[in-house]
Design a protein around this nucleic acid. Structure first.
Lengths: 146, 146
DNA sequence: TTGCGTGCAAAGGTTTTGCATGGCA
DNA sequence: TGCCATGCAAAACCTTTGCACGCAA
């Protein structure tokens, strides 16, 4: 079931987008930043193409999309190798809305969620695309004392 | 840190916005829906006013703002006080990546997740911002036979 | 009366789409 | 060669802001 669903061309722009995200694995990057960075890199890519590539990469599970608190803009982060290798299919991610850190959570307890929801609610959760939002312990302290 | 900062007029529009949200405590309502609903109700309120009131209500903790991972729209829901109290108002959402349907999931089993992750992993999940992605039963069938 | 709240419209920003051209296979 | 991908620009979208008028206190 893996093969090429369609003929997908190998283009320079595609490689540039992915390469940049790969080079910044722990950063969340907005579309605008990506456009600017690539332009600065000497390999300019149109905004429309960036969005189209990001959409495609997201579908392929190579990058992950996050939404900023204001809801006006989204940012992307490379997170492909794990998702690609399939080692993430039983573990979830925690994204701190305070500092933006991404925590990989390996826990059998949580793996049971998928089964529970599928059996009791008829919904097949895709852990690779699902991220828990909240506050990490450090940010929680800051918030509480504010 | 509480309510009456003063010089807040009591207007019909303000009451209408709050009344509508109060009347639909378990629903997510977008600004556009709110505008449309109020207009249909015979008490039209301008979009700008709706946003201004929502912003104010959010500050006062009377309503809560949700940002969908779609990124293109935000929703509001009445119920700030309960959320603050921390009572297991664990209300997660399932979003089907196939048809886009949003399922509201009220389930005690899932409420335990929040507690577990907080205690064992030191991470305070915010159910309001967390959405499970996956496939609903209908879309799962379509995909499997494709 | 005073001044906040409202409405309309225009601005602001992000993301999507249309269409002709260019590049990969 | 065929066909996908790109780029530019315009559109679509949600949200915010400016300004004059209306209404609550």
């Amino acid at each position: 079931m893996q093969g090429n669903r369609k003929s997908e061309y190998q283009t320079r722009q595609k490689a540039c987008v992915l390469a940049y995200l790969e080079a910044h694995p722990e950063q969340h990057i907005t579309a605008a930043q990506l456009v600017a960075a690539l332009s600065r890199n000497g390999t300019p890519v149109g905004a429309a193409t960036v969005y189209r590539q990001l959409e495609r990469l997201e579908e392929q599970g190579l990058v992950r999309r996050y939404v900023m608190d204001d809801g006006n803009s989204a940012c992307w982060q490379f997170g492909g190798e794990e998702a690609k290798a399939g080692t993430c299919h039983s573990h979830f991610h925690l994204k701190c809305t305070g500092c933006g850190i991404l925590i990989h959570l390996d826990c059998d307890h949580l793996a049971a969620i998928t089964a529970h929801v599928r059996e009791d609610h008829g919904f097949a959760i895709d852990p690779a695309r699902t991220t828990f939002y909240g506050l990490c312990s450090a940010c929680a302290e800051q918030t509480s004392e504010e």
